[in-house]
Nucleic acid binder design. Structure first.
Lengths: 193, 193
DNA sequence: CTTTAACTATACCGATTGGTATACTGATAT
DNA sequence: ATATCAGTATACCAATCGGTATAGTTAAAG
């Protein structure tokens, strides 16, 4: 692995564990086996490092969602594929997912939030798209696409959250097909089923 | 307002805006109109300041939830009161709520997370309690109390999230009774209603 | 009148923060 | 052979980090 790649990897892991503001550039460089000027050669600044990290790892994420969210005349099926893609990408790189969450919830005026916000906004639109393209199936949504997207995203997110609640074991972030079916059932028809 | 109170207030506001790690003790002291030794006299450490801040503001929160989550033979009613209490406490002090979220999502090994975790764990139990006490109404839950609590909490959380998405205006965190009814309807009977 | 205790300020600590000026490497192109 | 280039290291910067030793100040209690 070349130095650039090594720095990105180290940074992701450290940012995840102790937060963007909680980790110094010095430490990232050291644990990557390089010195600070090398890091600054590639990324220009700490913020630049975060930006390139997000840009790179978001590409896979968006490609997967692009595919999964294509509506094929069946809301449940599309939601299933969407949820599957979401959980898969999370379990493929749990650190990145948790880093995203951390940045999103970090103070609105923090560098971390400002940097991650546009990425997450784009990501969120994939979920909105699903409900919009299912307009025929859902009848008059009265502009509730956003509400649906939110509550669906919320279900997915918090499903994971509790998984990783008191465990350090990120591999527990894997969600089975059956669990998705259950989650979907509840989302579509409520908890009385 | 005495110095201690002033420091707590300033700290909450700054931590919310730029994150626990993003704010220095120096700045908190300055903006509170005191010097650092005064701050350390009252709180002992930066972590101590956060702890006392959480302890104080959680008391109100828990008292409200304690009341709201009493089951009275009607799940829907209890969920309504719970949601109402949740949204009220959030809109009463949006900064504190967002600070909690930020701390919760900050790195698992960060001081902020370690400090806030026990508080949130206790808070979460109120939601679990609701579904447990409604066991008769829901029939065999097959141990799904936790799943219900998670997905309900998720709905509430993300309802707020989108509210504050692209606005700096925290007052938009108010949720009307009608909105709660809608949210509840969806949670209980799914989105096809 | 003095002691005591709560509280606050001046001035400092070593360590770390994000960031850089400068010089050097080794490989490639001319 | 030499000039150019991406990439890397030594050594440094001012500023800030969390935290503290010490010396007041103030008001109530003896």
């Amino acid at each position: 692995m070349d130095n650039r790649e090594m720095i990105l990897k180290t940074a992701k892991s450290l940012f995840y564990a102790r937060g963007y503001d909680g980790v110094g550039v010095q430490e990232i460089a050291e644990k990557s086996g390089v010195t600070k000027p090398t890091l600054y050669y590639y990324f220009g600044s700490k913020k630049g490092l975060l930006e390139q990290l997000l840009t790179r790892d978001f590409q896979l994420l968006e490609a997967e969602m692009e595919q999964a969210t294509v509506y094929q005349g069946d809301l449940r099926g599309t939601l299933y594929r969407t949820a599957r893609a979401f959980f898969d990408s999370v379990s493929r790189d749990p650190e990145f997912y948790l880093l995203l969450m951390a940045l999103f919830f970090s103070g609105r005026k923090s560098e971390g939030f400002r940097t991650v916000y546009p990425f997450l906004e784009r990501y969120y639109q994939f979920f909105v798209k699903v409900f919009e393209s299912a307009a025929g199936e859902l009848g008059n949504m009265r502009g509730r696409q956003n509400q649906f997207a939110v509550s669906f995203t919320g279900c997915l997110q918090f499903y994971l959250l509790v998984r990783s609640r008191d465990t350090e074991d990120l591999s527990s972030m894997q969600v089975s097909n059956e669990e998705i079916e259950e989650l979907l059932q509840q989302f579509l028809y409520g908890i009385y089923t």
